[in-house]
């Protein structure tokens, strides 16, 4: 190495530069399709006619997101409407439906299951009331909580019209459905949709022109929860009964 001529030095330096460039390019291409928040607008579709109340979604959510006992990021409600009294339905959700439901005998009442979760509203009441900016609507349409910044003041818990938020008993910060943000940003579906045996719940990317959500919204009777509150809910229910609150 001591007798390195100028020519050799340039040769070696040139090789080094080319190789280091190649290595850098290889490292960059390690993530082939880096996730871009601008390309997505997430929501969910729920087909009431397909929900059998098995509770797999609620159980899967708990397993995926380490949701504490007796708290629910998603849950299933069983509605029973007696006669035509749709204004006073009987609603039950034992353990959020995680362990399923006791079978209901045939009766005159109308009965059905309604899975619920955060509606990932486009104009979220919870985001509007947060005094510190710890909860927010992400650029790709998911309402998230910044655990390290939340002060646990509970305004958002009170503001959510759907009751989807709670204070985590150990962390003492607001906790809610993240639409499995850690999964959907790497090409997986949500844990609840993954575990749903009938396809009643499906993750929807409203910015993807090939997503079946467009066909679903165009060809079915669609409703969101509490449309009168104009929250911009992005959880779309097919054939939702008017008794559902």
């Amino acid at each position: 190495m001591k007798d390195l001529s100028r020519r050799q030095l340039f040769e070696k330096a040139g090789r080094f530069l080319i190789l280091s460039n190649a290595a850098a390019a290889a490292l960059n291409s390690a993530e082939p399709n880096p996730y871009s928040t601008a390309d997505h607008w997430w929501g969910m579709t729920i087909d009431i006619d397909q929900c059998i109340g098995c509770g797999n979604c609620a159980a899967a959510c708990q397993a995926e997101n380490k949701v504490p006992e007796e708290f629910h990021r998603t849950w299933i409600e069983r509605y029973q409407v007696q006669g035509d009294d749709y204004q006073h339905p009987q609603v039950e959700s034992p353990h959020g439906g995680r362990e399923g439901f006791t079978p209901l005998p045939e009766s005159a009442a109308k009965s059905f299951y309604v899975p619920k979760l955060c509606n990932h509203c486009a104009t979220s009441p919870c985001v509007q009331v947060c005094p510190v900016g710890a909860t927010f609507e992400s650029p790709d349409g998911v309402v998230l909580v910044d655990e390290s910044y939340c002060v646990g003041c509970r305004y958002c818990v009170q503001a959510c019209p759907y009751g989807t938020r709670f204070i985590h008993p150990e962390k003492q910060v607001a906790d809610k459905c993240t639409l499995c943000y850690h999964r959907i940003t790497q090409g997986l579906t949500t844990a609840c949709a993954e575990a749903c045996p009938t396809g009643a719940r499906k993750l929807a990317d409203l910015k993807d022109p090939k997503d079946p959500v467009h066909e679903f919204l165009r060809t079915n009777t669609i409703q969101v929860l509490k449309p009168q509150m104009a929250t911009g809910s992005k959880v779309y229910y097919k054939n939702l009964d008017g008794a559902v609150r």
């Binding site: 397993a63 900016g133 927010f136 910044d146 390290s148 993240t178 943000y181």
Partner: peptide, 21 residues
């Protein structure tokens, strides 16, 4: 990106996955 900490997006993405798919 808005009235929140930009790093919170990454924090939420970094959670471990349980269901492999």
């Amino acid at each position: 990106y808005g009235h929140y900490r930009a790093g919170a997006l990454k924090d939420n993405r970094m959670k471990p996955v349980s269901f492999a798919g």
